[in-house]
Design a protein around this nucleic acid. Structure first.
Lengths: 151, 151
DNA sequence: TCGATTTATATGATTTTTCATATTTTCAGC
DNA sequence: GCTGAAAATATGAAAAATCATATAAATCGA
C-alpha cells in the first residue's frame, strides 16, 4: 500500500510549486555558499553589489528579498568582516551606500561565477522546451505581480 | 536619470526569479492567512492535512518545507489551540499522526477555498500561454531536482 | 535474539528574523 | 523659510527558526 495518497490540493497549488521549487533548486547552491563561509542573505547582498555597487540599504533589501532592519544588520556584519563598507551619500545624508571592498568583490565574483555554472547545470537537466520557457514565465509572473491589481 | 542601472546578473538569475516570484506571489495570500489568525507555517499544515489527514510529523515537515523540530513545535501550538490533535500510531509507536479537529477542518477548508480563488485570479492575470505552462514547468523542475544528480 | 543502525519525535540553547518605533534628513506646499 | 509629511536607517525587545543532541521505538544482520 502506498503511503502517498490523494494529494489533491497542495501538490498542484501554484504557490506550493513556486515555494518548493525555489527551496529545492536553491538548496544545493546555498550549501555551497555556506561552505564558502557566507550566510545566504550575505551572498544575496554580494550578488546585488556586483551588479550595481554602492546600492543603498533600502534598495538592497528589496532586491535581496528581506526587510530593511534586517539588511541594516547584515550590512553591519559584512562591514565588520571587511566584505563591504558603508559610504555616506553626499546628496542625501539619510542614505547609506554599500560598497564592496576588494576582498568582498573577489568573493562576490567567484560566487557569481559558481552560480552561473550551477544555473547552467540546472537548466541543462531540463528538457529544452522547459529550459527555454522557465525564466520567461517567471519574469512574466513577476511583472504581473508588480502591477497593483492581480490580487 | 534612472536609479536602475545595469542589472546584469541577479535579475536574470534563475534562483532569484524563483525566490522572488515565490515570495511576491505568496505575499498577498499570506497576508490573508495572517488576517485569519494563522501563521504561514500553520496554514501549510492545514493544507497538507486537508489533502491527507493523519500525516506523521516528518512527512508534514517535508511537504510544508520546514524542519522536523520546527514542525513538532508548530503541531504543539496548533494542538493547544484546538486545530489538530496528536494521535499515536498503533503500528509504529514512534510516529505521531496529526489529525484535524472539526474546527481545524473548517478553517482549513475555508482557506483552501480562498487559496483556489486566489490562484485562479493570479493565473488569469497571466497570458494564456504562460498560465498554461507555468505549473508544468515548475513540476518538471521539481522532478529533476528529486533525481539525485542535477547539482 | 542480540547488538548496531536507522527512523521518528522532542527539547535546550543559540541564532535569525520580525515588529514597533526612534532618529535624522529631505521634500512639498504654503 | 516654516511646518508637516515622507523617506532612509537604526535599534531594543520579542518571536520564529535552527542546530545539536537526547530519547525511544523499529529494523536489519550476523
Amino acid at each position: 500500500m502506498s503511503e502517498t495518497q490523494n494529494d489533491t490540493f497542495v501538490t498542484g497549488y501554484l504557490l506550493y510549486l513556486l515555494a518548493a521549487s525555489s527551496e529545492q533548486a536553491s538548496a544545493q547552491f546555498h550549501d555551497h555558499v555556506r561552505a564558502r563561509g557566507l550566510r545566504v542573505p550575505e551572498w544575496r547582498v554580494l550578488a546585488c553589489l556586483v551588479d550595481n555597487d554602492g546600492m543603498m540599504i533600502t534598495r538592497l533589501a528589496r532586491l535581496s528579498l528581506m526587510e530593511q532592519s534586517r539588511m541594516t544588520r547584515i550590512v553591519d556584519q559584512m562591514d565588520a568582516r571587511g566584505l563591504v563598507s558603508r559610504v555616506a551619500d553626499s546628496n542625501d545624508k539619510r542614505r547609506v551606500r554599500v560598497r564592496l571592498t576588494a576582498e568582498g568583490r573577489d568573493l562576490a565574483e567567484a560566487l557569481v561565477k559558481d552560480a552561473r555554472r550551477h544555473e547552467t547545470r540546472l537548466l541543462s537537466a531540463l528538457a529544452d522546451t522547459d529550459a527555454a520557457r522557465i525564466k520567461g514565465v517567471l519574469r512574466t509572473l513577476l511583472d504581473v505581480l508588480d502591477r497593483p491589481d492581480a490580487t
